[in-house]
Amino acid sequence: MDFDADQLEGRLMSHGVYVTSLDADGERIVVEYESIAAGKADAVPNREVGRVINVVRDLTETPRGVRGSVTDLDGEPVGRWHAEAEWLRALEDGELSQVEFSQRVVETITES
């Protein structure tokens, strides 16, 4: 990994996101996490997805895809989402606005 997994987990924990599994390679980062907010809403919170992506972007040197699987605090599946590496590169290059990027990610959310 070209980033510190403990730092990633610590930063996400400060946002109420508790990493249960983390896997990374040169193409993507797959994070499974428990969410306080997801349990209250019974849905994948869009703002929280944004936080996860932003923390990953802050801690990694090169854009790569991010895939998230969300559970509530009881471990019950809530949903999944993803952000493609090409979207992240387009965002960094200014070819995609933050709003357009966010819309693409939100459209990938599937509820369990």
Rank of each mutant, 00 (worst) to 15 (best):
T20F: 04
V17M: 11
E34C: 08
V78I: 13
D2N: 13
S69L: 07
Q7H: 11
E84D: 12
T71N: 08
L12Q: 09
H82I: 05
E100N: 06
D42M: 10
A5R: 11
E48S: 10
A83N: 08
D4M: 02
Q98W: 06
V55S: 03
D2P: 08
E86G: 09
A43C: 04
A41W: 03
G10C: 05
G16M: 02
E32R: 14
R51Q: 14
V99D: 15
I36T: 12
D42E: 10
V99C: 06
A24H: 05
A24W: 02
S35M: 02
A37S: 13
D72F: 01
D72I: 00
D4F: 01
D2A: 07
F101S: 14
L8Q: 04
M1Y: 10
S102K: 11
Y18N: 14
D42L: 14
G26I: 02
V44S: 03
V17R: 05
E76R: 07
V49Q: 02
S35V: 01
R104M: 10
G68Y: 01
P45V: 03
A90W: 02
R67C: 09
T60G: 08
V66R: 02
D58S: 14
L96R: 05
P63V: 05
T71K: 04
F3E: 03
K40N: 11
D6R: 09
V99S: 13
I53A: 08
E34A: 14
E95A: 11
V52F: 01
E32H: 13
G65H: 03
F3K: 01
A24Q: 07
L22P: 12
L59N: 04
I36G: 15
V99E: 13
V106C: 12
E92I: 05
I109E: 01
E9D: 10
E92G: 15
N54D: 14
D93S: 10
T60A: 07
R57H: 15
L8H: 04
G75F: 01
A90Q: 09
Q7N: 12
S97E: 07
Q7S: 12
T60L: 02
L12P: 07
D2V: 03
R104C: 14
I109F: 00
E32S: 13
A43S: 13
D93F: 01
G16P: 00
L91Y: 15
W81T: 06
R67F: 14
E100W: 00
M13H: 15
Q98H: 11
R11S: 11
V105Y: 01
